[in-house]
Design a binder for these strands. Structure first.
Ligand code: FES
Ligand code: FES
Lengths: 144, 144
DNA sequence: TTTATTTCGGATAAATTTATCCTATTTGTA
DNA sequence: TACAAATAGGATAAATTTATCCGAAATAAA
């Protein structure tokens, strides 16, 4: 469904959100340990999230990654997925036709678009804040 | 969403169904031309579909691929996806945790499983026959 | 200003997926 | 039986994704 990079990106963003809500910056090392991902690869993905302004990086001593507290509630999963995997998952044809087009539909178009639309809404309506809360309260988990 | 192999497999199965309903066997060459896919790779995927008994192959002169007419209505997309991509798309965790587990959910579990469930139902309830009919009547398309 | 710390970014490697090529095997027909 | 036509399958290559490594650049503190 999502690429590994995207899975790591989502989990990393949640972990950063959890920590930022407690005024703590985190390093790629901490992040990759907490989400069980390869460190250098995770760092690359974090760079992408920085470029797309999902997370903020502070270089140098006492630096790390953070998300401004008042942004945590506004950042949606969709932004993260878009930053890493692009928009093919929302817009692309399920059978790989060049474009998903009502006027030139593939055989599964009508049925597929319903599922894809539901996925899109889910991603657009789910904020980092909601996900971070469940991690904080121990209801959900980032690894294993 | 689906792998290229799976996209080709679905389109190939639909094309075979269309032809089998008219008592025509088709070759990998015809198939790959009609669904716009690499021929040798498509042939490999067809082998997998044969092993999973989704399509039938007849070797030797006058051979080709076919689906027994009365099976066309019973074959569901789910069988094809399962044969090629496995069941991770139905059962796997959206964030890549080892197992999707109610007792150890990832942050998106509750929301993701709804979408995944809808996808599963769609795949399990959509038959080759329905899809082949739209191709026959020119309502849907296998390429471009 | 020097030093320690930390992210950035380019180069490279490993693994997986996608794609190609060639030969073996099967099968119907002459 | 010999031949032609067709799928099966192994070996290999190309492309993409995933992962690692290392030096450059930035920053805070001493
Ligand atoms: S054309 Fe294939 S999903 Fe719309
Ligand atoms: S645990 Fe992640 S989707 Fe169920």
């Amino acid at each position: 469904m999502f690429s590994k990079a995207c899975e790591y990106g989502i989990k990393a963003a949640i972990f950063i959100a959890v920590n930022s809500s407690e005024n703590k910056r985190v390093s790629p090392k901490e992040i990759s340990e907490e989400i069980d991902s390869p460190q250098a690869f995770t760092a690359k993905i974090l760079q992408a999230l920085v470029r797309h302004q999902v997370v903020k990086s502070i270089r140098g001593a006492y630096g790390g990654f953070e998300i401004e507290k008042d942004k945590i509630a506004t950042i949606k999963l969709a932004q993260i997925v878009y930053a890493i995997d692009g928009d093919n998952i929302y817009k692309g044809c399920g059978l790989g036709l060049h474009t998903c087009n009502e006027n030139h539909p593939c055989p599964v178009h009508d049925k597929f678009k319903v599922v894809r639309e539901e996925l899109r809404e889910m991603l657009e309506n789910t904020s980092l804040e909601q996900l971070a809360l469940d991690i904080k309260s121990g209801v959900s988990f980032l690894k294993i």
